[in-house]
Design a binder for these strands. Structure first.
Lengths: 139, 139
DNA sequence: TAAAAATACTCCATAGGTATTTTAT
DNA sequence: ATAAAATACCTATGGAGTATTTTTA
């Protein structure tokens, strides 16, 4: 298992659509399909149920998701802590987030970030993954 | 960054010796050296101080270590939770651990494991990494 | 039919190895 | 003289891609 698998897994858990999730993590649908299957094989458990043109988390997937999100969040914080307290980073930072990250990661990330960069005005907007990607694409 | 980097980093942080840490994670000294450097480059920070034939954690490394350990521990628990509550796993399980893991990971792992496998008698022994690997090699 | 996931195959980036050099006791 | 880390170079595994097939609303 590598972080790659977790990133892909979380993307798919949020989108529940291989094609869209693949785009989000910047790989092709084929690659995402491979890697998810690989993760499932390593865990000896299906994480997703692929039926009737729809993708859903299995019970195992539901169990795995919060842990995976938490582990990645922990590393985000670690990286933020390491960033050499860049002498006076200022300005405005707007962050868009999906519900899953908003619950599990964002609060801790804000804590770490604002402690380090008190001069940055930070706003967070929650929205669906689909809506966020639309906004990003509009730029 | 991949989980590989974290595993290697933690091993080196515990051993503070490239050759020994490399053996622990089953790669060569050369590979470990490469991967650690790669991690440091990605983070933009030296994690270890290589001076006078000795290796030590830098301040950044000290900051990074507990987060890395915690993230990996979280995943260990996730994996343990997923293991299909194998109908009546029984017997005795002896676990050897290094101090770092004993503090950060073992307590949570025990909680998850005993909840799932109440019939297994579990004992944990803490010792130095060097001593543990010696014991393992004796088998 | 479309729209999405799985599969077959190809390619190449890089993890990991061997051999050697450098550095410090 | 020795022990350990860095470096140069090579190999081959597997991540990622394209193209195609299968599946099901």
């Amino acid at each position: 298992m590598e972080l790659r698998h977790l990133r892909y897994f979380i993307a798919l858990a949020e989108r529940l659509n291989f094609t869209h999730a693949a785009a989000q993590v910047h790989v092709t649908q084929s690659t995402l399909s491979h890697q998810i299957r690989q993760l499932e094989e390593e865990l000896g458990q299906a994480l997703f149920q692929r039926t009737k043109r729809s993708v859903a988390l299995t019970a195992a997937g539901e169990l795995f998701l919060p842990r995976a999100v938490h582990a990645l969040g922990e590393l985000d914080i670690a990286i933020a802590l390491l960033s050499p307290a860049s002498p006076e980073l200022t300005g405005q930072l707007r962050v868009g987030t999906t519900p899953t990250f908003d619950i599990h990661v964002i609060p801790r990330a804000i804590t770490a970030f604002t402690a380090r960069h008190p001069a940055v005005r930070l706003t967070v907007e929650e929205d669906t993954a689909a809506s966020i990607s639309r906004k990003v694409l509009q730029r």
